[in-house]
Simulated scan of single mutants.
Amino acid sequence: MYTIDLHTHSTMSDGTLTPRELAFYAKAKGLFAIALTDHDTTAGIAECIKAGNMVGLKVIPGIEISCKYHKIEIHLLGYYIDIENQTLQDVIAKILNERKARNVKMIERLTELGYPITMKDLNPNNDENMSITRGNVAGVLLEKGYFANREEVFEKCLRVGQPGYVEREFIDYKEAIAAIMAAGGVAVIAHPYFYKLKDVTMDQFILDLKNAGLAGIETIYPEHSKEKEREYLELCEKYGLFLTGGTDYHGDNKPNLDIGNGFGKTSVPKLYLDVMEKTVHFIKK
């Protein structure tokens, strides 16, 4: 059976493999296709597609956009996007500018806490299109020997409520979905299990996103139980959405989680990609 991975990250956000290395590695692991879905940037897609073509790996142009649903941070995956689309790139520029301002504040706060780092540490090549996340910050803190492991970095410093955490400003989920659709793509809610919904049910949450243009739910994910997978499958059937799946691969930044199989039990069939492609074809007709 052909398998795929529709949720991966490269060094253009907080992964540890370059887009080129990611494509080569996915092929070596026997995958039929991957989607590169870096956080709030499309900068690595062209390189990944070129490398994929070299080795016979299908690479779907994607993105993972951080946004807000009411006051809750959520992540939306966009697939088959036109990376040259101006509406999408304007939204990306808006998000990256906010990230840059936040990172300056985070560097200042970490320095005050006794963990000095610099922007050069976070972005050695001064790449304006790189999306720097807390994952990147955690990596630098580890390299400098301030903490023993990534879990300790977040538990003691970077998690919400910890002294090194800096609040973010997010775009609204409707704006994120609209940007994905403007770029000819389809929007999918990433890892719904993560969101701590307080005032609405998961059903209402999905319905609200569906009304804004949501096309699918990331159903297969390393931290989704079989019960959760069934719940999301039923919501897909109820609201006419397609299923997707992926590992959220970050290379060494997520130890023991591998591309294509997560912690050893995740497997996304090519059928999911076939259905998504039919949806994209129908939308673009």
Rank of each mutant, 00 (worst) to 15 (best):
C236F: 03
D90I: 08
E234N: 15
K198R: 15
K50Q: 13
P61H: 05
H224S: 06
G52N: 00
H70F: 14
E47C: 04
L235R: 02
T118F: 09
A178M: 09
T3D: 06
M119G: 14
L214F: 09
G213Y: 04
N97P: 07
P116L: 03
H39W: 08
V55E: 07
D199A: 15
D38L: 04
E231P: 00
G184R: 04
N211V: 12
S66H: 09
I180Y: 03
N253A: 11
I132Q: 00
S13L: 05
G245R: 01
N103Y: 07
T118V: 11
G262Y: 00
I60K: 00
A179L: 10
D121P: 02
D5H: 01
D40P: 03
I171C: 07
F147Y: 10
Y221I: 05
E21C: 06
K50G: 08
E47L: 03
K27V: 07
E218T: 06
A148F: 15
V268E: 01
V55T: 11
K50V: 14
T201W: 05
N136I: 11
I49S: 05
Y2A: 15
Q162C: 09
L96D: 05
K270L: 15
E218H: 04
I206Y: 03
L235S: 02
L22S: 04
L57T: 02
E108Y: 10
E237V: 12
Y146N: 07
K156H: 14
P269I: 05
D258Q: 11
H39V: 06
I4E: 05
A28H: 12
G185M: 09
N129T: 12
R168C: 10
G264W: 07
A33M: 02
K94N: 12
Y195T: 10
D258I: 13
K196D: 13
E169L: 12
H9S: 08
V137L: 03
N136Y: 10
G262N: 00
E237L: 15
I4D: 04
A176M: 02
F242L: 10
T42N: 09
T3E: 11
K27F: 07
V188K: 00
N97G: 15
F154W: 02
L110R: 02
S66G: 14
M202S: 07
R134A: 07
S131Y: 01
L22H: 04
A215N: 13
G30H: 07
G184T: 08
D127R: 08
M181W: 11
H191S: 04
E169T: 12
G260H: 03
A101Y: 12
G145Q: 11
K226R: 13
H281D: 15
